Simulated assay, not measured.
Amino acid sequence: MQENNPAASPRKPRLPAIEYIRGISMMGVIGIHVGSQYIGNPASNAHLTALFEIFTRFSVPIFFFISAFGLFYNLNLDNWSYSQFLKKRWKTVLIPYLVWSVFYLVHDSWLYGSALPSPLYFCGILFFGVAKYQLYFLVLLLWFYLLMPLWVKMVKKLDMLWLIFLLGLQVMFDYWSSFSEPLNLFVYSLPDDSLLKPFFMYRLNYWVMHYIFIFVLGGWLAVHIEAFQSFMQRRRALVTAGFFLSMASLLAYYYYLLGPQGYTQLEAINTAHQLCPAGIAYTICASLFFFTIFTYNNYPQWLKNLLHILGKHSYFAYLVHPLFIGYLALVLSKSGHLMTAGIALAFYCAVLCLSVATAAIMRKAGDKLPFINALTIGVYKKNK
């Protein structure tokens, strides 16, 4: 039986680009986290680091773009129920978030011999999304869901000029949050036992202000889907050029930090990230580019099948991949091998394949035991 949901518009045509971008984003996030392992090698190659850490910088914010696009694409802005919306989203995000948080806390306690957190500390871990380094994304997504009435009002009212104004505010806010010396001095001057300190230290984990523009842009384009499709068709060359130029500018900033500025690779990737002005431009251009090529370019069937598999299993793969990174890193450490460039590439392929394969196996098991899919990825068996 289909749920009677007033928030939904009449079913619109499926957009494969949404699923394909999810898969590409998941691959990029794994690249960033593998890059964090690779950069521990004192002789790490700066160009390979750029591939892992700079080229992939669109990966996290583009998830917000696609999430908003999917939400607004099938949402009736004039007749939707906030309570029904939250009920559905709690099932798809909050429950898996809690399950995976507990899993990683228990698993890491067992693997590394650390104590489980106290109840109060456990609540703090859940609030900030730090049970594992990838889970903060779900915390931010939950905050976006809680504030959905605000986004609906904004999407309904905004025009192109207001979008540009919002982009300007986004650039200024992200620059302040990322690079303000007074802010950083204030945060690091707080005592370690200060209750205020974690609220600033982990601000990237729950301040939705860091990603408002890309989220609202996704929703706005979904509502104006016909105009967006026309733009993609007419301006495909411009969209493609924008993607490569923005990528080149972010890479140039990275190499500038390494060269004239004398930054280490770690310092450079922590500066040339998705919240710096070049990173924001790259995210926007990448969102438009991937949506365009996955909508209007023709691909062989085998590639479509591969993109479908990656997209279908991206959620579970995103949530589980730190497990494989951790175990493979332990294997390397115990064997005495440094993560050279060749090993890093093989490491990435292994993590990706293991994560997607495990996701596919668990999804299949969830078809037999529906609680598995419900708890891990928020997918529920449909009543006939």
Results as ranks from 00 to 15, higher is better:
Arg203Val: 04
Tyr20Gly: 09
Tyr253Glu: 13
Thr240Trp: 06
Pro260Arg: 01
Leu94Met: 12
His224Cys: 02
His33Trp: 02
Leu75Ile: 02
Trp162Ile: 08
Arg236Lys: 14
Ile377Val: 15
Leu167Ser: 12
Ser194Lys: 05
Asn4Trp: 00
Ala341Lys: 02
Thr295Lys: 00
Ile280Glu: 09
Ser230Cys: 06
Lys197Gln: 09
Val102Gly: 08
Asn184Gly: 05
Val239Ser: 10
Ile24Thr: 11
Gly242Trp: 00
Val187Ile: 15
Gln229Leu: 15
Ser67Arg: 07
Phe103Val: 09
Tyr327Ala: 14
Pro191Ala: 02
Phe103Met: 10
Gly342Pro: 01
Tyr188Arg: 05
Tyr82Ser: 03
Gln170Lys: 03
Ser114Phe: 10
Ala281Glu: 10
Ile24Ala: 14
Leu204Phe: 13
Trp162Leu: 15
Arg14Ala: 10
Arg22Trp: 09
Leu183His: 01
Leu94Val: 13
Thr56Ala: 14
Phe85Trp: 02
Gly35Asp: 09
Asn297His: 07
Lys312Pro: 02
Arg22Met: 10
Met172Phe: 14
His47Val: 14
Ala359Met: 02
Ile32Arg: 01
Ile343Phe: 09
Ala248Leu: 14
Val29Lys: 04
Ser246Val: 00
Val331Thr: 13
Phe127Pro: 05
Thr271Gly: 02
Leu338Ser: 13
Leu307Asn: 06
Ala68Ile: 00
Ile62Thr: 14
Ala278Trp: 06
Leu140Thr: 10
Ile18Met: 11
Gly35Phe: 06
Met247Phe: 01
Ile269Arg: 11
Lys312Ile: 01
Lys156Val: 11
Asn41Glu: 08
Leu251Gly: 03
Trp162Glu: 15
Lys197Ser: 01
Pro182Met: 10
Ser177Gln: 13
Ala46Arg: 12
Leu330Pro: 03
Pro191Cys: 04
Pro6Ile: 09
Tyr145Cys: 05
Arg236Ile: 14
Leu352Met: 12
Asp78Glu: 15
Tyr202His: 14
Arg236Val: 13
Tyr327Lys: 08
Thr340Val: 06
His308Tyr: 05
Leu196His: 00
His107Pro: 01
Met201Thr: 14
Leu190Lys: 11
Pro96Phe: 06
